[in-house]
Amino acid sequence: MVLNEVAVRARNLWIGYEEEGEILWALNGIDIDIPKATAFCIVGESGSGKSTLGNAIAGLLPPYAVTKGRLDVYNISVIDGDKVDYSGVRGSIVVRIPQNPLSALNPYLKIESVFSDILKQRFRINSKVKALEIAQKALKAVDLPSDVLGRYPHQLSGGMGQRVAIALTIAIDPEIVVADEPTSNLDAYLKGATLNLLRDIVRKGKTLIVITHDILFASALCSFIAVMLMGNVVEIGKTEEVLSNPLHPYTRELIDAANLNFKNSKYAINRSKTNLRGCAYSSRCPKHSARCYEKPKLFYINESHGVACWNL
């Protein structure tokens, strides 16, 4: 992908977790460029490494994570080999919208204290009044009454919690917003409302990175899609290109599943035996061939549409 304005750039990024002396790699050498001021979706099944990528961008990798390669956020190097440094990025350039907003709010603090803690830190202001002014403006933007400020998290409903989380993000005013499964706990109506709020964020010129397993939601919101499988990006491109002309068999499988077309679906077995060095999809790929024991590189068929498959 050739783009001038890049918000997030990853080059041969490996991230793994140390588990009793062994390292389990969640990301296996990823190259990705996320353009500025767009909505970018990362789609994949659970265990595909999409949440790890999201956490890496948002700076929320756990302390036992192991890193290799490079990750730049807004041209600031956050991961360089095994050096990880998010100071000056987390909470000012990148903010994450949590998957489950109610468990992501401190249960011991009122919403107003959450706002004032964060805003005092962000804008280096000391007066609580000024912080609450910003908070009220942000709450207005998500259609919440300002009396929410006086409540504790357990007194909010799920939809309100989601909106409070988005309001916090708006108040912080970061350049990149990472939304980790923003709608997985919401019903259809609230899903739509959240979708609109997230669109507003993009409209303001922010970069939105959505991590989801729901390709339909992704297509409705985003202009770019990256499909991930077992720690690799298998297909990447503009949404309409990927959806109208899916090149990777796994993308096709995902789109078929979203259209409730299960003709070719079957349970994959022995998935855990997948060779790390080969193509991750090879064990369940219908077009499987001998070359698949080697890992395919992302191959761009045009300026923006890339796919990692030997059998095109």
Partner: peptide, 8 residues
């Protein structure tokens, strides 16, 4: 048991 370094 996991070794902890504070990361933030």
């Amino acid at each position: 048991k996991r070794r902890w370094k504070l990361w933030f």
